[in-house]
Computed example of a mutant assay.
Amino acid sequence: MMQLLTLTLLTASAVVFAHDDDHGHCGCGCGSHSEAWVPSFDNLITFGDSYTDENRLNYFINHNGSAPPVGTLLPESTSTPGGGITWDRWVSNYTGAKLYDYAVSGAVCDNNIIYRYIAPINGPFPDVVYEVNAFIADSKYINGTTNTNTLYTDRKSDNTVYSMWISTNDLGSYAFLTDSSLNQTTISDYVDCIYNRFDSIYANGGRYFVLMNTAPLQLSPLYGLPGQGGVAASHYWPDKPANTTEISYKMKEYTTLVNSLFTYRTPYELLIAKRYPGASFAVYDVNSFITDIYNHPSQYLSSPANVTSPYYLCDLTGANCKTASLGLDHYLWYDELHPSQQTDKAIAREFVNVVKGTSKYATYWE
């Protein structure tokens, strides 16, 4: 009861420091953010799934399931699940921060909670557990020739931001949505996994974290309502049941639940449990941001904007794919599940505001 009261008081105190909007506010010690949240934004290290991956899964596929060697910086790529440049690459382009992208398309937080097999690598999609371990190995890498770390040449506690955006495959089909979790695990275990990964990054020097909450998956064609862009079946979910309305509402319930957990657990871990001394967290409400694109598309997409239909659509086998007659910049969704490059550009611009400490879609805690 005392912890609940303390958290209530802390949350109330956050409102005192709120921006003049409905979203962003600061926790204790955060102030008004008249200066940039991050002292110097020189490096961006990202973890997640296909919403963030540039080409890490492609490396696994093209190398018989082998991971990139320790100390390897993968090249840029525009051949991504979103049909172009990813949001994190846009952030790098906009700010000059060096991008280290560990995200893997198809990833979940932990394969011991959700197991998703991919035939080309004869195993599960590499998970965020792998991603964080890969980052740690890279950070400790010593080049045999130079006797230095030639990958991370300028990683400091006050010039590096670590972002985490993982949920799409954890909550969706063949996962929690279809009651497919392992070992009697629940959504709470998935949330635990995320903070456990932050533990490992924090122990390895991370101090500035952006937790991107769950996208409004119920607005995507894969999980959308019938008559509002929702598809009956997809190559992502060829055996999708006919009760599409129930599926869409259940997905909204799950995303709302997870985002509520992020909202209250983050200040608890920082301010009450003291789990990350000296660290700062921003919870980026990308759910509300994408919903705003959906509701006000003319502010983000080229006219005429399309927020319900996918730009790129394949048959149930993943073949016979077709693109829309309008350009990709008119579309919120690239395909049935993935935001388009235009959406990624908007997400990136707001991420830059998050790092500056000025985003109305972010809540800051330290």
Score class of each variant (00 low, 15 high):
Pro221Val: 04
Gly31Phe: 06
Trp237Phe: 14
Cys193His: 07
Leu10Asn: 14
His25Ala: 10
Leu44Glu: 05
Asp53Pro: 02
Leu171Cys: 07
Tyr331Trp: 07
Ala232His: 09
Tyr236Ser: 03
Leu44Val: 08
Ser157Trp: 05
Ala319His: 14
Ile293Ala: 01
Tyr300Pro: 04
Gly83Gln: 07
Leu326Ile: 03
His63Cys: 13
His338Arg: 04
Val108Ser: 07
Gln342Ile: 04
Pro124Asp: 11
Gly82Ser: 12
Asp42Ile: 03
Thr185Asp: 05
Tyr276Cys: 07
His25Leu: 13
Ala362Ile: 01
Asn320Trp: 08
Ile61Ser: 05
Glu54Met: 11
Phe281Glu: 00
Pro68Asp: 05
Phe176Pro: 03
Pro126Ser: 07
Thr255Val: 15
Val231Arg: 12
Ser303Asp: 15
Val283Ala: 01
Ser92Pro: 03
Ala215Gln: 03
Asp329Ala: 09
Thr6Cys: 11
Arg89Ser: 09
Ala232Asp: 14
Tyr223Asn: 02
Ile136Asp: 08
Cys314Lys: 10
Gly318Val: 10
Glu54Gln: 14
Asn196Thr: 15
Ile194Val: 15
Pro267Arg: 06
Tyr94Ser: 06
Tyr311Ile: 05
Leu171Glu: 03
Tyr59Ile: 00
Asn213Glu: 01
Gln342Tyr: 04
Gly96Gln: 06
Leu171Ala: 08
Ser248Phe: 08
Glu35Ala: 12
Gly65Thr: 12
Ser32Asn: 10
Ala324Glu: 14
Ala97Ile: 05
Asn196Leu: 12
Thr185Gly: 02
Ala14Met: 14
Ala319Glu: 12
Tyr141Ser: 13
Tyr364Ala: 03
Gly205Arg: 08
Trp37Thr: 04
Ala12Ile: 12
Cys314Ser: 12
Lys274Ile: 03
Tyr249Asn: 15
His19Trp: 06
Ala14Arg: 14
Leu5Arg: 13
Arg275Tyr: 11
